[in-house]
Amino acid sequence: MDEPGGSFSFAHGARKVAPFSIAVFGFGMSFGVLARPTMGTVAPIVMSLTTFAGSAQFASASILGTGGTLAAAVIAAILLNARYGPIGVAVAPSLIGPWWSRFLRAQLVVDETWALSADGRGGHDPRLIVGAGLVLYAAWVTGTAAGVLFGDLLGDPARLGLDAAFPALFLALLVPNLDRPQARVAAILGAAIALALTPIAPAGVPIVAAGLACLVGWRRS
């Protein structure tokens, strides 16, 4: 490996992401509880193993659970995950090596690992993505399994306030990204677009549209 960053970055990434992994475990548990009545015991766990994208899994499982069609569930998931297209472009310059290695490490890129691995100059520490990504992946899959298997004992995850853990986690990730005026404009614009479209557009569309707020970077700040 001839990538920048010392070998300690794996462990560094794992340590940095540890606080977030507890919230992700809780979110995985909520997904397991929600998905089990419609998807059974095994399918939600396999989905977390293969998809590793919480909000899309949550949305598509709940669409299926409330009587929506398979097509509607799949389209919502694709719309919610569409942001990983441009996010992939953002991390691409930092991922070097053979294509299969770039492909595998790209699967560990989720909102949290992408935000935490940013070096503030547009680059991303690839070792941090892997270290942090593996910890979050383990938390997500074991959380899902715990929700599917022990969800009955837990009761409603909302009762424990776990539904607010998620926005709080994103808030903790957002604040270090607000160091420049242009970034603050993009954040306000992104939130405004998302809120404005939520009542009128299907799940996923508001997130994709909010991503367009990054076009304020067209002009040099």
């Binding site: 953002a90 994103f170 990730l173 957002l174 998302a194 990054c214």
Partner: peptide, 14 residues
């Protein structure tokens, strides 16, 4: 532009 994707998307998710 891509560098501003983080604040835009994270704020939208919040």
């Amino acid at each position: 532009i891509i560098g501003l994707l983080a604040p835009a998307l994270l704020a939208a998710l919040v």
